[in-house]
Computed example of a mutant assay.
Amino acid sequence: MRITAKVVKTVATYAEEFTGGAFKYHGTSGDIGHGTGYFDGIKQQVWIGRNASKEAAAYYIGGMLGWARQSGTEIPEDAVKYGQAVQESYQHNAKAMASQNEGEADGKFRAVVKAES
């Protein structure tokens, strides 16, 4: 699967819905020399460069995984299937995997914060 802006938006929408708004995607912007930039809607996170779409998608997938692990809730089946297809596209990309790990840590943290409030 080719990770495009549309794929990033779909994954981020799944993450936002699943986490009750703990994750949010802002959108894209062009950057001369760097290509498309992907902007997170909560953190001041921007992914730019050749693998930016993979890194952004990985972050939101990681967010869902971390949220699910911390909260004990199951990710909806359609999101799981889509997420697995996307993961296969970046599983050998070190930066994308680092983004997934960051998303997982954020997901766990945000689930704890929500549970405590």
Rank of each mutant, 00 (worst) to 15 (best):
R2Y: 02
T4E: 14
A5W: 00
K6R: 09
Y14Q: 03
E16D: 12
E17T: 13
E17K: 12
T19P: 04
G20S: 10
G21A: 07
A22R: 15
A22I: 01
F23D: 09
F23N: 11
F23L: 00
K24S: 15
K24G: 04
T28G: 09
I32F: 10
I32E: 15
I32M: 07
G33K: 04
G33W: 02
G33Y: 12
G33N: 13
H34S: 08
G37S: 14
G37C: 13
Y38E: 06
Y38I: 00
Y38T: 00
Y38V: 00
Y38D: 08
I42S: 02
Q44D: 14
W47F: 14
I48F: 08
I48P: 04
N51G: 10
A52S: 09
S53D: 11
E55P: 05
Y59W: 10
Y59A: 01
Y59C: 00
I61Y: 07
M64V: 05
M64G: 03
A68M: 05
S71R: 07
T73Y: 03
P76T: 03
P76K: 04
E77W: 09
D78H: 07
A79Q: 11
K81Q: 14
Q87L: 08
Y90H: 01
Y90C: 06
Q91E: 15
A94M: 07
K95G: 01
M97N: 11
M97K: 14
N101E: 13
E102V: 02
E102M: 12
E104R: 07
K108C: 09
R110A: 00
A111P: 11
E116F: 04
E116Q: 15
E116C: 00
E116Y: 06
S117K: 11
